[in-house]
């Protein structure tokens, strides 16, 4: 079993916790897959919700991952779970920072009005800064 967290190595850059407590790291979840074709998005969302119970979390949608937020998904014929609606509940979990890039929206002919929630739209330079600003990146 791992030793008590925080008692061994010094916390890495970006953490402020004292030696006796768990370093309070921030997590950036990256959703990069379209919904339904794989289960990455759905299981990634489960992880985001769990993460919100622990620490500060944000979600970045890259590439086809933005399709997870597309409105009007109806999975009743497919007999699959429509988890896009769960993104609306994320704010209730304390996850209010959702991001996507202008380029990914444009390439797909989308605007934020087409999405079930409104992510913050950023450019590639801001994307670099965003990724660097989180302690851990979790990819799905």
């Amino acid at each position: 079993m791992p030793a008590n967290p925080g008692t061994q190595n010094a916390p890495s850059i970006g953490t402020t916790a004292g030696p006796a407590e768990r370093p309070n790291k921030t997590l950036l979840f990256v959703q990069s897959q379209a919904p339904h074709g794989t289960l990455y998005g759905q299981e990634g969302l489960d992880a985001i919700m769990m993460g919100s119970a622990f620490t500060e979390c944000a979600v970045l949608f890259v590439g086809d991952g933005i399709y997870q937020l597309l409105a009007n998904q109806d999975t009743s014929l497919l007999a699959s779970r429509n988890y896009s609606v769960s993104y609306r509940a994320l704010a209730d979990y304390g996850v209010e920072k959702l991001y996507c890039t202008e380029a990914d929206l444009q390439q797909r002919g989308l605007t934020v009005a087409d999405l079930v929630v409104t992510p913050c739209v950023i450019d590639s330079r801001a994307l670099q800064a965003l990724m660097t600003s989180f302690d851990v990146i979790l990819d799905f």
């Binding site: 967290p5 925080g6 992880a47 769990m50 622990f54 979790l138």
Partner: peptide, 11 residues
Amino acid sequence: GLGQLIDGAIS
């Protein structure tokens, strides 16, 4: 549970 993933990432 998934809490072990989050704990792992944090710890």
